[in-house]
């Protein structure tokens, strides 16, 4: 239980960066933090104490295995996260080219 609450707190750290920071790189960092916490939460949900990895020839009696379904979902989500981060970084590069800094308040002053 305390592990689940701790990963919720990691999610809140990322959300804090997105809401209150005025630097675009910090916003991207917060986005990555949120993504890590959600991936970790999925892996925790599929785990039981003393579980073995789901790589086996046949199920042996008396042994517990972790759930392969959340792992398969997270496997694709990690790679998507890299693509989304790269897209955010390219948008940040273009905005830096236009306004000369990473400041979000400079963007609000832009007209047109």
């Amino acid at each position: 239980m305390i592990i689940l609450v701790a990963s919720l707190i990691l999610f809140l750290v990322g959300l804090y960066a997105i809401i209150t920071k005025r630097n675009m790189i910090k916003v991207a960092v917060g986005f990555s933090l949120m993504e890590y916490s959600v991936n970790f939460l999925f892996a925790i949900v599929g785990f039981r104490p003393g579980a073995l990895p789901p790589i086996l020839q046949a199920v042996e009696a008396g042994k517990v295995y972790s759930d392969p379904l959340p792992q398969a979902l997270v496997l694709t989500a990690i790679v998507i996260g890299l693509g989304v981060t790269a897209f955010m970084l390219s948008l940040i590069l273009r905005l830096y080219n236009r306004i000369g800094s990473f400041d979000l308040e400079e963007i609000q002053r832009l007209k047109g």
Binding site: G83, A86, L89, S90, L93, Y96, N97
Partner: peptide, 12 residues
């Protein structure tokens, strides 16, 4: 993605 992000054309 890496080739585009790190290429020499886009140095600011």
């Amino acid at each position: 993605i890496f080739v585009v992000l790190a290429s020499t054309k886009y140095i600011f």
